[in-house]
Amino acid sequence: METFAFMVANWPVILQRMGEHVSLVGAAILIAIATGVPIGIAITANRKAADAVLYAASIMITIPSIALFGLLIPILSLIGQGIGYLPALVALVLYSQLPIIRNTYTAITNVDPALREAARGMGMTTAQRLREVEIPIALPVIVSGVRNAVVLSIAIAAIATYIGAGGLGTFISRGISQTDIRQLLTGAISVSALAIAADAALLGLQRLLTSPGLRIR
């Protein structure tokens, strides 16, 4: 009840923190899509490259976020950006690579070879084949990768408050340091709600982007 009163009283701050959180995650995901999807497509051409890239990305994701922040701070402080928005953004982009690259790669390689052969035989160029056949068929799986990346990023962005990136995690960090249950719960609930809402929204998007021909049965 107290927490509820706190939320009502502080809703402009909550909205502002939410805005920071969303813009950080949003920017990271856009960059991650812009890099991950092309990489995922590119490595379908070469098995060795695919293995190497996926292996590197899976090691990347094993590194705990707080440790990665710790590693980035000394490096980025070389350009005076050790603390704040940039290390958080870099970390989120790096973490988002694995789900996006892996899903893109798997989805494209799983497209039935017969379809590829039919497309080639009918005279599609590589670009046309990607646009007309492979990407539409792979799209649901790619979006599901983005979904994983978004949920992961929202969680890590909450931790990024400790390196000065703001966001909803700030309520939690203050709640812990001031032993203030109201702030603690406000942070936990709002960041969870954001993650759940984003997950649901992207699931909706995923269904929307699935061609009806793939949806049946």
């Binding site: 039935d112 017969a114 052969e117 035989g121 056949v133």
Partner: peptide, 23 residues
């Protein structure tokens, strides 16, 4: 040109290869 050539030749395969995402 390979692509132009293929467009001028009809092609049917055993697996049919209809694109599931298209009507």
């Amino acid at each position: 040109d390979d692509v132009a050539l293929r467009r001028s030749i009809g092609y049917v395969i055993q697996q049919i290869g209809l694109f599931p995402n298209k009507t």
